[in-house]
Amino acid sequence: MRYTLSKVGLLLLTLWAAVTLNFLLPRLMPGSPADAAIAKLAQNGPVSPSTRAAIEAQLGVPTGSAWDQYLQYLNNVVHFDFGVSYTFFPQSVASLVATALPWTLVLVGFVTIVAFIFGTLLGVLAAWKRGSWLDTLPTVGGTFASAFPYFWTALLLLFFLGYVAGWFPTSGAYSSSATPDFSVAFLLDALYHSILPATTILITSLGGWILGMRSTMINTLGDDYVTFAEANGLHPRTVAIRYAARNAILPNLTSFGLALGGVVGGSLLVERVFNYPGVGYLLYTAVVNQDFPLMQALFLIITISVLLANFIVDILYGILDPRTRR
């Protein structure tokens, strides 16, 4: 209990630090969004003071002391008020993020978890049946598949299964004719669209989990408590799962936390390739269009997701490893 509380405290503290940094960074940078816009216009000729005033009025210029701005900012963050997007004017940043986030979380997040579970199981099997085909096949296959660059696998799948065979749609998260709701037809449509991006992520990340789990599992299989469990005549399955795998998974949880934290921020490439309307695609759009409010909100979301993922893994550790509870 004390362990959980201390982890919650740590989470709140880092959250506050992240939010504050997110507030400070744009203000520490030279110039302002308005300056950037004016500089762009100035390339085509002099900018009149009235144009400047109009742009500043549109973007908003901070008023009040830094402290007041900070409090205002905190208040806005608590109410999910991140202002208005430049690119998708007049839509609010919050609504844009709210639309994009579920797509990313469901697609990338779900596939990351599935890849971890599946890869870990295969790794356990490979180590337990070391030297047999159950070992060779996943190990060699995993190494081979994860050696491909992410986008290249994606392009291969798109080309062969999308264009050539025409089995799967090549872009988007759902058919252009469908309207997002929770009907069975729409969900099936979304699932159909997610198969190619999901497969890409699975192919490229599975190998890492297999290899990681296999090597830690081989180490724990050599540990004395495994030998002792065998000497005591425990059932081989009990030895493999409760004694060896249960301990071997612990170091891999850290990598799992990193992978989970990277879900929101790391989805850019796959969503760009598949035109998938998630956070990564939104971030790409924001950066290309210099949409500062959108960017700032997305950075905050990415930071928070990393913090939350680490928090979850910390709690998992507390449950799985009695040594961390003390």
Binding site: D224, Y225, T227, F228, A231, L250, L320, D321, P322, R323
Partner: peptide, 15 residues
């Protein structure tokens, strides 16, 4: 039955 040399490590740390 066998009692191992390093009884320190003969117990599963998570059970």
């Amino acid at each position: 039955a066998m009692v191992l040399q390093s009884g320190m490590n003969a117990l599963n740390p998570v059970r």
